[in-house]
């Protein structure tokens, strides 16, 4: 059976010179973000759709605003250099009940501290971490490596050529960060720490 409709759809999808209304672009962007396994970046979206990056960003903003406007259970998030559709955190209980999952094991205080030092000081060696934390961090480093939150970043050209560590892409994902620059500056914590 000939189906002219599907033919039209196909030709539209590969169209190089897009003649889309803003609304159509928003819908397309939404569809692509939805199917993407990983956060999908502006550039990739622009390449696939044959649109300018600016248009893509505007579409994402529009989409994001629509979600907020209708108090959707979903949200558009910018994370690890891309966009992602995710549920809103306030529904976590119900979602967990459905998925039958529990929050995964929390990192220990020691591991979190070690991770903080690595995130802010990367690339950083074990002795440098020891210097700041005042305690051996071998176990924490192993935990963080196992959880793939940190990765080895080559050796430092210093005595003993110690291994250096830095954070991974998984770190951005698990801590909901767009990129490392989104981390608040460490100096900001000075005032905070003093006020506690």
């Amino acid at each position: 059976m000939e189906d002219p409709v599907s033919e039209n759809v196909e030709s539209a999808a590969v169209a190089k010179a897009p003649a889309r209304t803003p609304g159509e672009l928003v819908a397309l962007v939404e569809a692509l973000i939805f199917v993407s396994e990983e956060p999908i970046g502006t550039k990739l979206l622009a390449d696939i759709l044959g649109e300018e990056k600016g248009a893509i960003q505007a579409a994402v903003e529009q989409l994001s605003a629509e979600y907020v406007e209708r108090s959707s259970g979903l949200q558009i998030r910018e994370i690890a250099g891309g966009y992602q559709i995710a549920t809103r955190p306030e529904f976590h209980e119900e979602i967990r009940a459905f998925l039958k999952t529990r929050p995964s094991a929390k990192l220990s205080l020691a591991s979190l501290e070690t991770l903080a030092v690595i995130a802010y000081k990367q690339p950083v060696t074990v002795p440098e971490i020891l210097e700041i934390r005042g305690v051996q961090s071998a176990t924490s480093i192993k935990t963080l490596l196992d959880k793939r939150l940190i990765v080895a970043k080559g050796r430092k050209e210093a005595v003993g050529r110690p291994m250096q560590y830095g954070t991974s892409k998984d770190f951005l994902l698990q801590f909901g960060l767009k990129d490392l620059s989104e981390l608040p500056s460490i100096e900001d914590f000075e005032d905070l720490a003093a006020s506690v």
Binding site: T87, P89, H92, I95, K106, L115, R133, Q174, F175, A193
Partner: peptide
Amino acid sequence: RLLEYEKFKTAAGMLHERTTIEQATFTR
């Protein structure tokens, strides 16, 4: 050293907060 350490301890608290929120959001 204490002051330096305290900054990172506070940063660790921030990371903790972030991961808690992160764990409460789900993708498909």
